[in-house]
Amino acid sequence: MSDTSSVLRIVWIYPDLLSTYGDQGNALILRRRAEQRGIRTEILHVHSSDPVPAEGDVYLLGGGEDRPQILAANRLRADGGLKRAAERGAAVLAVCAGYQIVGQSYGDDDDNPLPGVGILDIHSGRGETRAVGEIVADVAPELGGGRITGFENHQGRTTLGPTATPLSRTVAGIGNDGSTEGAYQGQVLGTYLHGPALPRNPQLADLLLRMRVGELPPLPPSWGEALHEERLAAAL
């Protein structure tokens, strides 16, 4: 948790630009799973006209259409708050369009490369076809392993630079390129599992929480685990 307070600060970046597919779900599940363990939380909505505070614990970036994505990237680069937070060791979960723009570069609608925030060593461009549908992937063992399930809807193809590591191996669906899905670098996580990735994968929510608060007591099973199992069974 941040050094100056005992409240876990969840910062939702630019809900006005990057909130297309139920992205709010990630903030709500983090809050719920923290508070069930007696951790007080606060969710901050940071609009694109406002500065990004550097003192948050977990930063969330969601999905967006092409033009809002470019606006968000430009504003985040000019603002600098997210980069400072990541350098301080904050946890970041960036999904879909948000995943692309935290990287080194991403493609606009004509696939011209544009600069990203640069906190994750990835480069994204446009693929030939759109990846739409259920996706299943196996999380890297050093992050605790386990299977994740989600829905992807993007035309991006992402390659990882030497500093980033795949978040998972694709079992069904496309992800980065059909073989790996997402990337991480320190405490910055990115994924093509769009929108409510954490509600469908409680273990990912706990991974982010552990990055800030250390070991967590287990929780009794919730509908999150039931949904996780149901979606895995449906996709495989």
Partner: peptide, 9 residues
């Protein structure tokens, strides 16, 4: 729509 993400909106 095959995607239920919107429930979270």
């Amino acid at each position: 729509g095959k995607d239920t993400s919107w429930l979270w909106d």
